[in-house]
């Protein structure tokens, strides 16, 4: 120690400042790495949940036409955003803020059904979920006409669940003509109510896209079938009433 020129207590003050610097740097590393990692984990888990919910919606819709329950409705829930986060998000120990999601119900890809009765255009039912994540990559899941796709709008979409088709039969889930679009953005659970209106069968028909598109994933499922069944649905999405 320099006993003559150093003030008393300087060593302790310096020690205190260094300890504070250590605490601040630990907090900075925490906020920069742990909180985003936790946010990404929660959002990824939520993406898995929404995929499962949309697959359940496909299952529910198929159940109605398979059991011939005409004019009957059923409803399922879709969670547009993960449930987590507090009012003080972003601070130490606390949960990260989490994004919201958008559910859209509209008419999707249109098809031509060419049978002996002449060409008939139909519009498929389209239910889209788009996420708005803070940390993880955004997710886009589309239920269309009985198939479930995943992928962004300008990317190649890949098929999660194919439509109900076989070698000789095809079932297309459609909506009535001039269907109006509904869209809800939110972070509370939404209800999706689907009502089976009825079906129409076409024998020995050729199904093709209304607007030919070589990049569409539907090309793998279309063609000529012995029996084409078009089942019509009315779908509404809403929040808590």
């Amino acid at each position: 120690m320099k006993k003559k020129t150093a003030d008393d207590g300087v060593a302790e003050v310096i020690g205190f400042v260094l300890i504070i610097a250590l605490v601040v740097s630990v907090a900075a590393v925490w906020i920069l790495f742990y909180i985003p990692a936790q946010g990404q984990a929660v959002e990824t888990e939520h993406a898995r949940l929404v995929t499962e919910e949309i697959a359940d919606v496909k299952y529910g819709i198929d159940l109605l036409w398979m059991n011939g329950k005409t004019d009957t409705n059923a409803s399922r829930v879709i969670s547009p955003s993960p449930v987590q986060g507090t009012d003080l998000s972003g601070l130490l120990f606390l949960s990260p803020p989490l994004g919201t999601g958008t559910v859209t119900v509209s008419n999707g890809t249109a098809f031509w059904i060419n049978s002996s009765a002449g060409p008939k255009p139909v519009s498929s039912l389209k239910i889209t979920f788009n996420s708005a994540n803070y940390y993880a990559k955004d997710l886009r899941i589309v239920y269309e006409g009985g198939a479930v796709f995943r992928g962004q709008k300008n990317e190649t979409q890949y098929v999660i669940l194919p439509p109900s088709s076989g070698n000789t039969n095809l079932v297309l889930v459609c909506v009535p003509a001039n269907y109006s679009e509904q869209q809800i953005l939110g972070n509370i659970p939404l209800s999706l109510t689907y009502k089976y209106l009825g079906n129409q069968t076409y024998s020995t028909a050729n199904v093709s896209l209304y607007k030919p598109d070589p990049a569409s994933p539907w090309n793998a499922f279309l063609g000529t079938f012995t029996k084409v069944t078009v089942v019509e649905y009315n779908v509404t999405v809403r929040g808590l009433q």
């Binding site: 159940l63 399922r76 829930v77 449930v83």
Partner: peptide, 30 residues
């Protein structure tokens, strides 16, 4: 704050459990 978070997450989970039960019961009678 962590307790509030855990409670909110659990509220959401129970709601989904009930929704799943309703959907499963609907499947049974459908």
């Amino acid at each position: 704050v962590m307790g509030t978070n855990a409670d909110r997450v659990h509220n959401g989970d129970v709601l989904l459990e009930f929704c799943q039960m309703k959907a499963d019961m609907d499947t049974v009678w459908l």
